[in-house]
Computed example of a mutant assay.
Amino acid sequence: MLLAALWAGSVWAVSYLAAPSAFTVLDSTQAGNVVGVMLTRSAWLAIALAVVLGLIVARARDVDARRRHWLFGLIGAMLACSLVVYLGLQPMMAAIREAAGAAGVRASPQWGTFAALHGVSQVLYLAESILGAILVVKAR
Rank of each mutant, 00 (worst) to 15 (best):
A107Q: 13
R59W: 06
V52Y: 13
V136T: 08
H69W: 11
A127R: 03
K138I: 02
V123N: 04
A50C: 08
Y86P: 01
L55F: 12
L83W: 08
L124D: 01
V57I: 13
I134A: 14
I75W: 05
A50Y: 10
H118T: 03
D62A: 10
S42Q: 14
P109K: 06
L124C: 08
A116G: 12
D64A: 04
A102R: 10
A43S: 14
E98F: 07
R140H: 10
G112N: 12
V137N: 04
R140I: 11
W44P: 05
G104N: 07
D64L: 04
I56G: 03
V85N: 12
A80E: 05
C81L: 09
G112Y: 00
V120A: 12
S42K: 12
R97E: 03
A116K: 06
L79W: 06
V105A: 02
A99I: 01
R140S: 12
Q90F: 12
A133E: 02
H118Q: 14
V123R: 03
I75N: 10
G104W: 09
G88P: 04
V57Q: 09
A65C: 03
V52C: 05
R106G: 07
I56T: 07
L49W: 00
W70R: 15
A58D: 07
G119C: 10
I56C: 00
Q90K: 07
F114E: 06
I130S: 03
L126K: 00
I134H: 03
A100G: 09
A100T: 05
R97Y: 00
G54A: 08
A43K: 07
A60R: 13
L126R: 01
E98H: 09
M92V: 10
G119E: 03
V85K: 02
I75E: 02
V51R: 02
Y125V: 13
A115G: 03
I75P: 00
M92F: 03
L135D: 06
A139M: 14
V85M: 13
A103R: 00
A127C: 12
E98N: 09
R61P: 01
A139R: 02
L79S: 00
M78I: 14
I75K: 01
L126M: 10
S129K: 02
G73V: 06
L89K: 04
R68K: 15
L126D: 05
G76M: 12
L117Q: 08
V57H: 07
A43W: 08
L71C: 05
H69P: 00
A95D: 15
V63C: 06
M92N: 12
L83E: 11
P109Q: 11
I134T: 11
M78Q: 14
A43R: 11
A50D: 08
L71D: 00
G54S: 07
G101D: 02
W70T: 13
